[in-house]
C-alpha cells in the first residue's frame, strides 16, 4: 500500500475508485451537474461520470460557485465521493466545509501523476497528517 501525506484535509474518511487527470476543477465551469459528467469540452475528463468517484486533480479553478455547488450536488446524490487536489483555493475549502465534503490537498509529489486512474483509494482527512492511501491499482 502506498500512502501520500497531504498538507490539510477535512471531512469523513471515504474509499472509492480514483478518477485522475492533470487538469483543474470547478463545479460551474467543468460539470454538467444534471447529468453528472464533466462537460467542459477541453477538460481532460470530458464526458466521464464523476458520481461517486474520488477526483484526483491538479488545482482549483474558476469562480466562487463551487462553494454552493458541492452542497447542492451532495443533496441530490450526484456528487463525487471526495476531492484530492495538488493546490486548493479557498472556494473548495468553503464548499467542503458547508457540505461536509471530503477534501485533502497539498502533497510532496504531483498527486495526479502518483495515483493511477481507476485505482482503489482511501482518503483519510482525520489522520495526522491527512493521507491518501492507494489500496489497489487497476489491472
Amino acid at each position: 500500500m502506498t500512502v501520500f501525506a497531504a498538507a490539510a484535509g477535512m471531512g469523513e474518511r471515504v474509499r472509492g475508485r480514483a478518477l485522475v487527470a492533470s487538469d483543474g476543477f470547478s463545479a460551474r465551469y467543468d460539470l454538467d451537474r444534471i447529468a453528472g459528467v464533466f462537460s467542459r469540452p477541453d477538460h481532460a475528463l470530458a464526458g466521464q461520470s464523476y458520481v461517486g468517484r474520488i477526483l484526483v486533480l491538479d488545482a482549483a479553478k474558476g469562480g466562487v460557485a463551487t462553494a454552493w455547488m458541492l452542497h447542492e450536488m451532495a443533496a441530490r446524490k450526484i456528487a463525487p465521493a471526495a476531492l484530492v487536489l495538488n493546490r486548493v483555493n479557498p472556494i473548495m475549502v468553503q464548499g467542503a466545509a458547508l457540505a461536509g465534503f471530503t477534501l485533502i490537498s497539498g502533497f510532496a509529489v504531483d498527486i495526479t501523476r502518483a495515483v493511477a486512474n481507476g485505482a482503489l483509494v482511501e482518503v483519510d482527512p482525520g489522520a495526522d497528517p491527512p493521507v491518501l492511501r492507494v489500496l489497489e491499482n487497476p489491472a
Binding site: 460551474r28 469562480g63 466562487v64 460557485a65 462553494a67 454552493w68 455547488m69 452542497h71 447542492e72 451532495a74 443533496a75 441530490r76
Partner: peptide, 15 residues
C-alpha cells in the same frame, strides 16, 4: 454574497 439559485439548488434555498 454570490448566491444565484442555479448554484444553490433547492437544497441551498432550503438551507
Amino acid at each position: 454574497i454570490m448566491a444565484d439559485t442555479e448554484s444553490l439548488g433547492p437544497a441551498g434555498v432550503e438551507w
